[in-house]
């Protein structure tokens, strides 16, 4: 760019700002020599330059930093995910196994799982003085050493498991024989009287024997803390008559097949299952002395908390 009197200010400023190449700077110097009247303008522009002043930032130390030496712990997401899967799988398996530990015994299998010690207990109970006085004269029960239900005298035998809260006893359940007298066939509820309920089973068959069994040992002990209080759930006047259930008690959950009756009742919170297993067979398999025409009623009372 050629310098002249029209553009000298711009070139003076570029010169002072150090933005001109060497050749252009020489031209400006030459122009100033040739035009001394413009030297004052050049000097005035030079005076507009600020002289650096020393100003200190007093809080400089506050700006200084140190490297953060804290160790970074990496999160291994894959390992974390694998651990979570293993924990969930383990929990599922445990819950599944726990669910399988609550068996529902079928009526037909009860008599097969009755332990021998229970049978002997029953026999001992049978020979007790309290039992003898309640047996009828023509009952074959007397010969079989089994307690007999005599409908004519309104006598009912109820199986009750003892050792309610003791795990050790529950593992080896004892069976005691209790007797309830004068229970009306009309299923009068003992609940109304404020007494403990008890399961009752009545048959009007002559020469009938009642085989009382307990809960088999295969059931987890902690789930069998309380035996269902007795109450009359079903009645039948004769062997040919169909069992009549009290639906208010069974909640309509009873079922009957050829030789077995079962009733399962869930409580309001579905936290326990209670009921009894009955098995009606033509002949007592453990006592050949009973004739083929006699009927045997096997009762098992249970309550499973879960």
């Amino acid at each position: 760019m050629e310098i002249n009197r029209n553009n000298y200010e711009t070139l003076f400023l570029l010169y002072q700002d150090g933005e001109l190449p060497q050749s252009a700077m020489q031209k400006v110097q030459l122009f100033l020599l040739e035009n001394p009247d413009l030297k004052k303008d050049f000097e005035l522009l030079l005076q507009t330059r600020l002289m650096p002043t020393e100003i200190l930032f007093e809080k400089k130390a506050s700006l200084l930093r140190k490297e953060d030496k804290r160790k970074v712990i990496p999160i291994f997401w894959l390992r974390l995910a694998a651990a979570m899967i293993i924990i969930m799988l383990g929990t599922w398996i445990v819950l599944k196994q726990k669910a399988q530990r609550i068996p529902v015994q079928t009526a037909t299998s009860i008599d097969q799982s009755v332990p021998d010690q229970v049978k002997s207990k029953l026999q001992n109970a049978d020979t007790g003085p309290g039992d003898n006085k309640k047996q009828t004269n023509n009952s074959p029960k007397k010969d079989n050493h089994f307690p007999t239900a005599d409908i004519n005298n309104n006598k009912v035998f109820v199986a009750v498991k003892s050792g309610k809260n003791s795990p050790a006893k529950a593992l080896n359940p004892e069976v005691s024989l209790q007797e309830k007298e004068n229970v009306p066939v009309t299923r009068k509820m003992n609940q109304e009287m404020g007494e403990p309920e008890k399961v009752k089973r009545e048959e009007t068959v002559q020469s009938q024997s009642v085989d009382l069994v307990s809960i088999p040992n295969t059931l987890p002990s902690e789930d069998l803390k309380v035996i269902l209080p007795a109450q009359t759930l079903a009645t039948a006047k004769t062997t040919t008559e169909e069992l009549s259930f009290d639906h208010t008690l069974t909640n309509g959950s009873e079922s009957v097949n050829d030789n077995a009756i079962s009733v399962v009742a869930l409580n309001g919170k579905n936290k326990s299952i209670s009921g009894f297993f009955n098995k009606l067979i033509k002949r007592n398999p453990r006592n050949t002395a009973i004739t083929a025409n006699e009927k045997t009623v096997q009762v098992s009372v249970f309550k499973i908390n879960y």
């Binding site: 020393e54 200190l56 930032f57 400089k60 200084l64 930093r65 490297e67």
Partner: peptide, 23 residues
């Protein structure tokens, strides 16, 4: 830039930057 470099920047330029901002 390391922490050392940063502190060097503080030493070199904090005053000039403060002057620039103050003016």
């Amino acid at each position: 830039m390391t922490a050392e470099n940063y502190n060097e920047c503080v030493s070199k330029y904090a005053d000039g930057l403060y002057r620039f901002m103050l003016k």
